[in-house]
């Protein structure tokens, strides 16, 4: 081999593509052949990445079983050589991969369970921010309220699911039998976020989901109330909007406000 760089290219191909060119550089040991010895690295590469994915996607594993999960993991590893230094991010493409790759793409709940697990992990070690406290709003003048905009907590993620993947995830997490698969006629939203160091999630009804979506775009509270009135009827619209807001504050879903 002509250079250190060529050596590393060859060694990496030997692992990723199982190219045997590297064997000409490797010596047999007194007890093992060079192919067995290079096999230690080949085996370790796949085993380590499979272990990372197993830790990141425990409930996908539980749902698919050992054999199905092993197929998913092998396909993912083959298609996604790690491009990050930190193994924490190796599995980040799994929801998209499972949604787009047959046969897993025929079972939408698989990618949705993966999406929930990824969102919970992302919320768990996502950025810190002091949650907005209700007391911070107490001193505002009544006239300020229509002009308020809110910042979501940086860990908050809104997902939309076409199946009852969240209920399946919860049952598997509790080590109970998952419910039968349900395909929703309309996608349903849920929020994932971190509160008190715990990653959490809960479903959003369509009206709350709409208001959350608009809130994250920086829409003022006065307009939000009008949108809620249009969405679900004018009666008590402001009370409904204020109730959603209060619940978000109590849950640590907001991190700040501004008076526009």
């Amino acid at each position: 081999m002509s250079s250190f760089k060529d050596f590393q290219d060859s060694f990496q191909r030997g692992i990723l593509e199982r190219d045997d060119t590297i064997l000409s550089d490797v010596k047999d040991s007194t007890t093992e052949s060079r192919s067995v010895l290079i096999g230690v690295y080949r085996h370790a590469y796949v085993a380590r990445l499979a272990e990372i994915l197993g830790d990141d996607y425990e409930q996908v594993h539980a749902y698919l079983g050992d054999e199905g999960f092993a197929r998913l993991v092998k396909a993912y590893i083959d298609a996604n050589p790690s491009d990050k230094r930190n193994a924490r991010w190796f599995g980040r493409h799994m929801p998209t991969f499972a949604r787009e790759t047959a046969p897993f793409s025929n079972h939408r709940e698989v990618s949705e369970i993966a999406a929930l697990e990824k969102a919970l992990s992302d919320a768990f070690d996502g950025p810190n921010a002091e949650p907005l406290a209700i007391d911070q709003l107490a001193a505002l003048a009544v006239d300020d309220w229509p002009q308020l905009t809110f910042q979501p907590h940086p860990t908050a993620i809104r997902l939309t699911f076409t199946t009852n993947a969240a209920a399946i995830w919860s049952a598997l997490k509790d080590e109970t039998a998952p419910p039968d698969l349900v395909r929703y006629p309309e996608p349903q939203a849920l929020l994932v976020w971190r509160q008190d160091f715990m990653a959490r999630f809960r479903p959003l009804d369509p009206e709350e989901s709409m208001m959350w979506n608009e809130t994250t775009k920086g829409v003022r509270f006065g307009i939000l109330c009008e949108m809620v009135a249009m969405f679900g009827g004018e009666d008590d619209a402001e009370i409904r909007a204020a109730t959603y807001l209060r619940d978000w504050i109590d849950s640590g879903l907001l991190a700040g406000y501004e008076v526009e």
Binding site: I15, Y45, S82, D83, K84, R85, A87
Partner: peptide, 8 residues
Amino acid sequence: VHGVNLHD
């Protein structure tokens, strides 16, 4: 190398 990390 080449932007790949083999995590080994």
